[in-house]
Design a protein around this nucleic acid. Sequence first.
DNA 1: TTTCAATGTTGACAGTGCCTACTTTGAGGT
DNA 2: ACCTCAAAGTAGGCACTGTCAACATTGAAA
Lengths: 192, 192
Amino acid sequence: MKTRESDYHHGDLRQALLQAARQTLEQNGPSSLSLRELARRVGVSHAAPYRHFTSREELLIALATDGFDELTSRLRAAEKATGTLQGMGQAYVGFAVENPSLYKLMFSPELDRRRPELLAEAAAAAFGLLREQTTADDGERSGTLAAWALVHGLSQLLIDRLLSEELLAADRLPALVTAVLGHLRVEPPGNP
Amino acid sequence: MKTRESDYHHGDLRQALLQAARQTLEQNGPSSLSLRELARRVGVSHAAPYRHFTSREELLIALATDGFDELTSRLRAAEKATGTLQGMGQAYVGFAVENPSLYKLMFSPELDRRRPELLAEAAAAAFGLLREQTTADDGERSGTLAAWALVHGLSQLLIDRLLSEELLAADRLPALVTAVLGHLRVEPPGNP
DNA sequence: TTTCAATGTTGACAGTGCCTACTTTGAGGT
DNA sequence: ACCTCAAAGTAGGCACTGTCAACATTGAAA
């Protein structure tokens, strides 16, 4: 690997900032996530981030978008591996529990207004997968909606620690998700 | 009503601040909710709020606590009026949709750490009602959990506008909630 | 009437987002 | 090999914020 003589130019500041942001996000929560702090952490001046993000909000949006992409790929993998709604639900909740602050950020009210297309698309991709898995043949979509709401709500409850703490253990999650999803009546997308 | 000669003392600054906070919260979102702005709005100096709240966070906590109390009383009313899970679900989602920013605040990650007892208690009261309505006699609680996660998740999806906008109309909500809850299998708390 | 704790005010400090003007650098065209 | 120039980084400043300490005003209790 080549070491650069002068480090005036960082090399890949954008990625370094995102990475540092993700780290401090999960460690200290979203309140302390300031551009200046990130710049300090990466060893760069306080205005440097503005060469890569036009505002703090855009940095957050980039974080959230990456999050949705990651969630999508994990859902896709679970779909390939198990092909069941339970499997995808476990993947969904697993992601949320492993990245609680990021998951919260993805649905943060600070990103509500002007939610840009990138974010919307990434989110739609993730949820579209769930939709395929649950669309019934009665033309109704409420089954999809119910499943979606269920995993989303369960994730939030777990993250917010409104359930008993033990349920957060990774080896307990699959059973929990299966049990909760078991209360759902949806026709599988099979033959009519 | 008596008008006070000098307005050095506000009268009920704490309540006025909370009220103003709630207003700006629903109007401009949570980002612009600053103590100084509130003080300005209420016509008081920038440090006056600190006589009633030791920090900005505590102001937010008070807001959230009030929110949980309100939600609880609405759930209680719905329980008395309808006695059904659907009725309570409609009340729950209705509250969330009518006070989207407040609802988000109630589950905001900024209040995660040190979530004080008051908040936890108020939240527990609200969710305890749901629990009564769904506890099956098999000793299992996953039914309660499923119902809870369902209304919570549905509320979030609606607030975040991840569903088609028309569903947000007040007259559409009851049907939507009923449809979604219809996909839930829970034994009513009746006789064995 | 006097006292005093509760409630407001002023001024200051550090931290933040973001803007403008300046500097350094590496890559591409001649 | 040189020049150029846009991309990427720096320095400084502005307006705003949360929070603290010191001071001012007040209504109500003693």
